[in-house]
């Protein structure tokens, strides 16, 4: 993972650089003493992981992350003040480490980041194919689209309900939706996409698919009805 360190204290920067150098899975792309410099680096380089101090002069680490939008890499916040933890986790960051950072605590955060990084690069897809690939427990697995019953958003993850197994991947439901064939799949709820061919019954606002209940929200009801071409 390409990594960028941002901290306004030179000793903290050196300490983090040392820890990054010791970790084989990390490649240090740069070090920044403030958020403005970091923003430029992130915009112009492929940064996978940001090790970011919270309290810095000018733009804080929290403000930087909030403003990153689409280019947001994985973030590990590092601060001497635990009061920032709640705000940090609200920004869907990988971890929040209190200073002074020990090698053991650093490694724990990196392992977590590595797992998320792997699952983020989950889909090696082709919309013309009748299957998708997902990364599952260290292997890349092929899933037949026709075997998928439905998908459910769970925070930063998506659960894929196959006919007989459930897979969890780190992704947004929207980015998964973009990779599914629209002739087979339909959004029925903010948190659910279903395989239309797998619907067993519909009753009111609920679908039954493979013995599971899936809610249909009002916003998607008419689109689903059109899609099903009910006789």
């Amino acid at each position: 993972m390409n990594c960028l360190i941002v901290d306004d204290n030179k000793i903290a920067l050196s300490a983090l650089k040392h820890l990054v150098d010791m970790e084989e899975s990390l490649t240090l792309v740069g070090e920044c003493l403030n958020a403005t410099e970091a923003y430029q680096k992130i915009a112009n380089n492929k940064i996978d992981l940001l090790l970011l101090d919270v309290e810095m002069p000018g733009i804080t680490g929290l403000e930087l992350v909030d403003g990153l939008g689409q280019i947001k890499p994985l973030i590990i916040f590092i601060s001497s003040k635990k009061d920032y933890a709640a705000d940090a986790f609200d920004l869907n960051v990988v971890d929040f480490i209190l200073k002074p950072v020990t090698p053991a605590r650093f490694l724990k955060a990196i392992v977590k980041a590595r797992e998320i990084y792997k699952s983020r690069n989950l889909f090696i897809e082709n919309k013309k194919d009748e299957f998708i690939f997902i990364r599952d427990a260290g292997v890349i697995r092929r899933l037949k689209l026709s075997d998928i019953c439905y998908l459910e958003a769970k925070g930063d993850y998506v659960k894929i309900y196959d006919t007989d197994k459930i897979y969890t991947i780190h992704s947004s439901l929207k980015s998964v939706e973009d990779k599914l064939t629209p002739d087979l799949f339909s959004r029925v709820h903010r948190s659910f996409i279903i395989n239309v061919s797998k619907i067993d019954t519909i009753e009111g606002g609920t679908l039954i698919i493979n013995k599971s209940f899936v809610p249909v929200s009002d916003a998607y009801k008419s689109a689903l009805n059109k899609r099903m071409q009910i006789l």
Binding site: N9, K10, I11, S14, A15, H18, L19, M22, P100, V101, T102, P103
Partner: peptide, 24 residues
């Protein structure tokens, strides 16, 4: 203790950080 734990025996790093502490 912390410097020793962090440095993992890297004397050059111990020197670098100690010098940085003195200056900073």
């Amino acid at each position: 203790d912390y410097l020793m734990e962090l440095s993992m025996g890297d004397v050059k790093f111990q020197k670098e950080l100690t010098n940085q502490f003195i200056e900073l």
